[in-house]
Amino acid sequence: MNPMPALEPALKQLRLSGILDSMEIRNKQAIENGLSHVEFLAMLIQDEVARREQKKFSLRVRRAGFRSEKTLESFDFSYNPSVNKALILDLATCRFLEEKAPVLIVGPCGTGKSHTAQALGHAAARNGYEVLFTPIGKLLGMLQAAKATNTYDRKLSTLAKTDLLIIDDFGLKPFKSSENEDFHDLIAERYERCATVITSNLDFAEWGEAFNNKLLGAATLDRIRHGAYKVILEGRSYRSSREEAALKNLVAGAEENT
């Protein structure tokens, strides 16, 4: 007697319908290898756990708002040998999240700051952490919009509790008066409670220039720098290398057609 017609609706009722995806394969393996009923059941349950974890990971990545699929596996460390690979790989273990420590990533345009930050975000998502990646302009815009709708406290609380907040392009434009306060409030709420990654084209000594309120800026930066890991990316621009490669391909194609 084939139990599948009765089994399928029962599994769906129990929200275990994912088991159906591997049922046939696992059943065949169990027969071929002479597995016990318990061993067969264990394989099905492990498949279901893996499926659910993958689904949760995909949801965390989607909510994180990454610009693209940037991971450490796709980062070319050999392009700029001066990059501290050991430090970046250590950060990818997510120990800094347990420490509630900031990570500050600086370097010229095109040296991989956003890629590194998003790669750390992917690593955090794989380890079960909730992540949000946002350019600083968009972040400040969200807080300003929340003020306009009287939801500032709620938005600030949500951002403050996110396991890992990645703020991209700090210091790209000077803060406006209200933005000084908003950014300070957010950093103060997250200080020693949650980890924050910040990228910037500015050298660390220049970060104070982003604030027009120097007193508030000093207090904010004091919290950002306390116990922070500092990643300095130097060398050639990855964007330039892509442009050079595209130009070479264009020239090679033109020569072939002549």
Rank of each mutant, 00 (worst) to 15 (best):
R190V: 00
H184C: 08
D203V: 02
F175L: 15
F204S: 06
L165H: 09
I198R: 02
Y191E: 07
T196W: 00
L164S: 08
A210I: 01
L165C: 08
L164N: 10
F183R: 04
K214Q: 14
I166C: 00
K176D: 03
E192I: 00
A160M: 09
L186F: 09
L164G: 11
F175H: 11
S200M: 06
W207K: 05
K214L: 13
S177K: 15
L215D: 13
S177I: 02
L165Y: 01
E192Q: 15
A210C: 09
F211Y: 11
E179H: 06
L172R: 11
D168N: 05
R154E: 15
A188W: 02
A210W: 07
N213L: 12
R193L: 10
D203C: 02
V197K: 05
A188L: 08
S157Q: 13
S177N: 11
D203I: 01
D163F: 07
D168G: 04
T162C: 14
F170Y: 14
F211M: 04
L164H: 07
G208I: 13
K173P: 00
T158N: 11
H184Y: 15
S200V: 07
E189G: 02
K155L: 11
E189I: 03
A210M: 02
S157M: 07
E189M: 13
A210Y: 03
A210N: 05
T158H: 12
E206D: 15
T199C: 03
I187A: 11
D169T: 01
